[in-house]
């Protein structure tokens, strides 16, 4: 089957557009998150996003309009805890993930019952994106990308050295908040196609791959973006051809690319 045929289906076109943009956002933000040791925040937020989605469907709200504010709130909360000396940060994230997941599952089983919906939320579905979802995704991802490019240098400074940035008058809290709001948005957008369980790997894998291969921050950011988009497209096609879930297919491609990058880096250092 040719590429033209695969992408002649409207649902595949929607998945391609939304997926490419979301992967790109995930990868760019992921570089900062991974370097700041915030990888698990992405994971926590995706579970909150699952819970919010379940509640939204049960109450009859438009899923995205409900989950976006909830997840942004959760992001604020997680960030506060990350910088709070008395909180055990990773335990707090684990508690939040599990609670949101449990609430989501309870709500679903009490309302619609454990149907394919749950399966779709957990592991994603290529059919999940409606035309209006795609429009919202495009709009928000472009906003995320523009903000990332504009604040690129400041995000670098805050990622590399928070104390120096703070001492020299950079508004560190503002940029940390920006980072978490952008992450929250991206996760909500990507979750329904990739699945709550797998969306965080879209944040982590490209950054790890790029860090094995490149030595400059700019190189890492560009490489992470490219590898995320490439892996998404290949994963989407695999998912179509073999009828596998799209989220899992993309993650497996990401894993393969990551392993190759480890190999290259090991050979280089021999």
């Amino acid at each position: 089957m040719s590429l033209v045929q695969i992408f002649s289906y409207p649902f595949m076109q929607r998945a391609l557009i939304a997926g490419v943009l979301v992967s790109l956002c995930c990868a760019l933000l992921g570089v900062s998150l991974v370097l700041k040791r915030y990888s698990m925040i992405g994971d926590g937020l995706s579970h909150v996003s699952f819970g919010a989605l379940a509640v939204a469907v049960a109450l009859g709200f438009t899923p995205l309009y409900f989950s976006i504010p909830v997840v942004i709130l959760a992001a604020f909360f997680l960030l506060r805890m990350a910088s709070h000396p008395r909180w055990n940060n990773d335990a707090a994230i684990a508690v939040m993930s599990a609670s949101a997941l449990a609430i989501g599952i309870l709500v679903i089983s009490l309302t619609t019952g454990m149907t394919t919906d749950v399966d779709n939320y957990m592991f994603g579905s290529v059919l999940a994106m409606t035309a209006s979802d795609v429009i919202l995704s495009v709009f928000l991802s472009v906003a995320v990308l523009i903000l990332f490019v504009l604040f690129y240098h400041k995000l670098f400074a805050v990622t590399f050295d928070e104390s120096f940035s703070r001492a020299t008058g950079l508004r560190v809290e503002l940029y940390n908040t920006l980072l978490s709001v952008l992450t929250a948005l991206t996760i909500v957008l990507g979750m329904r196609m990739m699945g709550a369980m797998l969306i965080s790997s879209l944040i982590i894998f490209p950054a790890l791959t790029a860090m094995r291969l490149f030595r400059s921050f700019r190189g890492v950011v560009v490489c992470a973006g490219l590898s995320a988009v490439g892996c998404f497209i290949v994963g989407l096609m695999i998912s179509f051809v073999f009828s596998t879930p799209v989220g899992a297919s993309v993650v497996v491609v990401d894993l393969a690319v990551f392993l190759v990058s480890c190999l290259i880096s090991a050979l280089r250092h021999r």
Binding site: L35, K154, F156, S165, T168, F214, S216
Partner: peptide
């Protein structure tokens, strides 16, 4: 941290 020397030094100008 993956960053070149000039990226780090330039960030002092922010």
């Amino acid at each position: 941290f993956p960053a070149t020397v000039s990226e780090v030094v330039l960030s002092g100008c922010l």
